[in-house]
Nucleic acid binder design. Structure first.
Length: 213
DNA sequence: ACCCAGGTGGCCC
DNA sequence: GGGCCACATGGG
């Protein structure tokens, strides 16, 4: 494993760009509060097919409205209440429904997001995938960055890297996820850092990273 | 006026 | 299982 090309790319990126915690302090930091975990899960939905900049503006809108909380969202009469806060992040009819579905699932079944840590990774992943608006990338983002579970995230940047380095011809989500997980030590920190580094490498550090929310 | 940004569900074949 | 489309705003 140590000599695998994928692991070598990770090491090269780390040397080149340094620890991602510098750029994504909220997402990669070692100790997270329950609120941190909730914000990351909410952010994972808001940033779907959307620039992080706009997703972050929506997060700030939710914060100003006192709604940056899974419990608060789950208590809403209707997801439409969130339309004005979410608008800036696009898909403003669908994303509120997705946030509502996730919040109701977590609060209704577990009381709070840390409840998900009591169950096996595979089981939580299957349940997340069953929710409206949560596909493989969002499920793995929540598992990896919100819950600190070793579930590698595949996105378009990862696919670009795979194509450029000719790491695989099958670009399906499941195949790439298995490929990366098979070629890396099972280590949450490495998974988190590598996914972030892949994005930096594709974006060439063009001035973004998550601000403190 | 285009094109894209850390996707997903619905529909069709 | 894969291919196409709608969803929607803001920035380059």
């Amino acid at each position: 494993m140590a000599e695998s090309k994928i692991y070598r790319i990770y090491q090269d990126f780390f040397k080149k760009y340094g620890p991602p915690e510098k750029y994504w302090p909220q997402w990669c930091k070692k100790r997270k509060t329950t609120h941190d975990r909730e914000v990351i899960a909410i952010g994972a939905i808001l940033t779907q097919r959307t620039s992080w900049r706009n997703a972050e503006l929506a997060i700030l809108n939710l914060k100003s409205a006192g709604l940056l909380s899974l419990k608060k969202i789950s208590e809403l009469e209707s997801p439409e209440v969130l339309v004005s806060q979410v608008r800036v992040a696009g898909f403003y009819q669908t994303k509120p429904r997705r946030l509502f579905a996730l919040s109701n699932f977590i609060i209704g079944n577990y009381g709070n997001i840390r409840g998900l840590l009591e169950e096996k990774l595979e089981d939580v992943r299957e349940k997340l995938l069953g929710l409206y608006g949560i596909g493989p990338e969002t499920a793995d983002t929540i598992l990896l960055y919100s819950l600190d579970q070793p579930s590698f995230v595949i996105d378009e940047y990862t696919r670009k890297l795979v194509k450029k380095e000719e790491l695989a011809t099958d670009l399906s989500y499941g195949h790439l996820k298995n490929l990366f997980e098979k070629n890396l030590p099972v280590d949450v920190g490495i998974y988190q850092d590598f996914h972030a580094l892949i994005i930096f490498s594709q974006k060439e550090r063009s001035g973004w990273g998550m601000k403190v929310v």
